[in-house]
């Protein structure tokens, strides 16, 4: 745990640099993103990425249900209006990629979109066809990020993705895990493979990654996507039985989801968190965490301790 603690000076230096990164003219010119949205740089390219993205597990798997499609369209409209960037999906998520393609088409593919999906097949030979299918469903010519889902057949898929990246068919390559699974193997892959991104479970209650994976990500220059920020709503439900602490206002949080998200993205190694929601109001709450101050190291410790006592 000692390796994950940062001095206040180190922390403030890092986060102020991040805030400055959000205001670089190049990023502002490329996207209509609100200027006060906090971003962090992708280490391998220095490209700024909004710290709050969006997951699609369960929430966007609604098939061709017109009623649900209307709601998802509004969710994405608010997401991009609030400066959101990364949307993460997977072929494992049923119709989620097809739904994203439909909804993004309705919104004319907002320029702030950072498209992220996964390859999820046990057959390395089937990988290219699945990758092509994902791109077709999303309706984009080139995905920003492809990740090997849950380390499934990762050796072969990483070779495929590295080749595609070299040919300019995608921009970034990564691997994912969740629920704290297979961290030792993930650590080995992070240490040995040339990755742009790693996705893992990290939140105020699941902090195993702080011990080795997050420091390793910083050392190796790998961007970190934190999934399950609310443990599928469980952490929010647990927190909302209690009043918001006074320190929440000091970091610009008006609700518990924002507190939980700011805890995650304030870790120096974490690039963005990807909460999923099927409600417009929740999306707006989540995006509030992309603005204002982040907690420093001391407050982070206090947040974790107080949450554990809830």
């Amino acid at each position: 745990m000692s390796s994950t603690r940062y001095s206040r000076r180190e922390f403030l230096t890092l986060t102020s640099g991040i805030a400055a990164g959000a205001l670089v003219p190049q990023a502002a010119a490329a996207s209509p993103r609100p200027a006060d949205v906090r971003t962090k740089p992708i280490p391998s390219s220095n490209e700024p990425l909004p710290v709050i993205g969006m997951g699609t597990w369960i929430t966007f798997n609604v098939g061709d249900d017109p009623r649900a499609l209307e709601v998802r369209t509004e969710i994405l409209r608010r997401f991009f209006a609030a400066g959101g960037g990364m949307i993460d999906s997977s072929p494992m998520y049923g119709s989620a990629e097809a739904v994203l393609g439909k909804v993004l088409g309705r919104l004319d593919y907002p320029p702030g979109l950072f498209s992220a999906t996964k390859v999820w097949t046990g057959s390395v030979d089937d990988g290219p066809a699945e990758i092509a299918a994902s791109q077709r469903l999303w309706g984009v010519k080139r995905m920003d990020l492809f990740q090997v889902h849950n380390l499934l057949a990762w050796e072969g898929h990483l070779e495929t993705l590295a080749r595609m990246k070299a040919e300019g068919q995608l921009r970034y390559v990564g691997v994912t895990t969740s629920h704290g699974r297979r961290h030792r193997e993930l650590e080995r892959i992070m240490a040995e493979q040339p990755l742009d991104f790693v996705q893992l479970t990290y939140n105020i209650a699941d902090r195993d990654a702080e011990a080795r994976l997050l420091p390793l990500a910083r050392e190796r220059g790998i961007a970190v996507i934190a999934n399950r920020p609310f443990r599928r709503g469980e952490l929010v439900q647990r927190a909302q039985r209690h009043p918001l602490p006074a320190w929440a206002a000091e970091i610009g949080c008006s609700n518990w989801p924002q507190v939980l998200l700011k805890f995650i993205v304030s870790h120096p190694a974490v690039t963005c968190a990807i909460p999923a929601t099927s409600q417009v109001a929740h999306m707006q709450e989540n995006m509030g965490a992309a603005r204002g101050l982040l907690p420093d190291a001391a407050l982070r410790q206090r947040m974790a301790a107080e949450f554990a006592a809830l």
């Binding site: 369960i58 649900a68 494992m92 046990g122 099927s278």
Partner: peptide, 18 residues
């Protein structure tokens, strides 16, 4: 081992409403 790492909830990728 890859498949054993999945839980029952991983095979239900939709909500009750859906």
């Amino acid at each position: 081992m890859d498949w054993l790492s999945y839980s029952l909830a991983d095979f239900v990728p939709f909500s009750h409403v859906t």
